[in-house]
Design a protein around this nucleic acid. Structure first.
Lengths: 245, 245
DNA sequence: CGGGATCTTGAGGATGCTCAACGCTAGTGG
DNA sequence: CCACTAGCGTTGAGCATCCTCAAGATCCCG
């Protein structure tokens, strides 16, 4: 299963202040944010938290989609495989992101932890029941789905029409923007994933990613720091590079 | 506006049997399908029908997203542009498809009629009010958004990791499957769009599309018929071609 | 029948891929 | 403490796929 040992909140814990949600750092940006203090316990009662080690599987494409997840810590990659092993990463998730809108009966993609990951797990069936109880939850999910679709369109444009350099720069700016949404600074950004993951996300090879990064470095557009951090000295210039203008 | 002359349903028409929805061929597969006879009039009251000529614009990326649409006849292409003119078609819509889930305040892409098109137009504001009234409408939209996301993931895999030939075959099979959902036969399929549109959808050039079609023809995988119809003699073989196995 | 648009075909070239070697870092165990 | 290894990133050389540019063919509509 790869889900470690899902720790069911004991009733005592759920009932008082030790609930995982009370201390949740991402609650406001996650979909739980729309629920108020009185409503939270209902959500809490159908939720399990768990931790996943790096490279641990979370969901497998094609399996029955029985659970949805909310990422509370770390990064996750979503990917699809072709029969011969070619892989396309369809997205990266970070703290506060929701995993599981894009599914019908079966998971449409696989998901795997990039680093150490913590997440909340919901039974899909129970969550759907909760949606009837709290229409604003459903509204929130629809809004999130809408956002995800807009993101997907951008990725489609990137994959179909951008050059390797434009792809890389777009990717870095995207990470920067998502960091800002989480309260981080736009410039040193963290790259928790390896070159192979970046390549499979951008429709390139690791060699091309490496070469392109070297070029961007040489041209002063980026600077590699310690610990996988990347500095973006001129966001405006990068913005232009990302769109080829 | 490019919307032709939206014909507001006169009250008299709305009230009795001449309503456009009663005769609507796509009602069951469109999102309206979840509403029953008593509920339809509420939807009807916020709807306008219109016809668009080939190449007529329907929405423009970046404009305030004030209207949503339901396609009742013809085909529509959705696309995004880069500053230098490169174009990526993010999707084609056919009868019964809904246009406008993937948007926030602004339209995330432009839309244009491929052939002659008929559609229903809804004020976004009024439709949102209706969602509160009919939760099942909202559920339906969420389901549709979910489906669109799954489709988008497939397109991302196609653009990032498939060869020109695999892309073309995947595209043809996709059209076939969507036709089947509308009650058509899987095999002769209609290609209402030009080579340039196919190219911009698959991240290729018109020349490559043309050449690849020629090759598929030569190898007996497809046959071009009159009127833009394409015959797919062996769906299973094509399925394998589409995934490179 | 003419003419514009679209489609096809060809030749050459560029971007990014493949295959291969090398360097760096961190973890491991002697 | 340090050699050793495994994994990852970088760099290089050659090549394939697809693009660009150009010309010709076909179709459609007036």
């Amino acid at each position: 299963m790869g889900l470690g040992e899902p720790k069911k909140c004991p009733a005592s814990e759920t009932a008082d202040h030790v609930s995982p949600c009370a201390a949740c750092a991402v609650r406001d940006m996650a979909f739980c944010g729309v629920l108020n203090e009185e409503e939270m316990p209902r959500l809490l009662s159908i939720l399990q938290t768990s931790n996943i080690d790096p490279h641990g599987p979370i969901i497998d494409e094609g399996e029955p989609a029985d659970y949805l997840f909310n990422l509370t810590q770390g990064a996750v990659k979503l990917y699809k495989l072709l029969p011969d092993g070619r892989r396309q990463i369809t997205g990266f998730l970070f703290e506060g992101d929701f995993l599981g809108i894009a599914m019908n009966e079966k998971y449409a993609y696989s998901a795997e932890a990039v680093g150490q990951v913590s997440l909340c797990r919901f039974s899909r069936r129970k969550l759907e029941a909760l949606l009837d109880e709290f229409p604003k939850l459903e509204k929130r999910l629809l809004g999130m789905a809408s956002n995800e679709l807009v993101q997907a369109q951008d990725q489609i444009l990137l994959l179909g029409r951008k050059t390797a350099r434009e792809k890389l720069v777009s990717f870095l700016l995207n990470l920067s923007a998502r960091g800002v949404k989480r309260g981080a600074a736009p410039s040193p950004i963290l790259l928790p994933m390896g070159r192979a993951d970046i390549a499979d996300y951008l429709g390139l090879t690791t060699e091309t990613v490496s070469r392109t990064i070297t070029n961007l470095k040489r041209d002063g557009h980026i600077r590699l720091l310690q610990g996988g951090m990347v500095e973006l000295p001129d966001l405006e210039a990068l913005q232009e590079l990302a769109e080829g203008s």
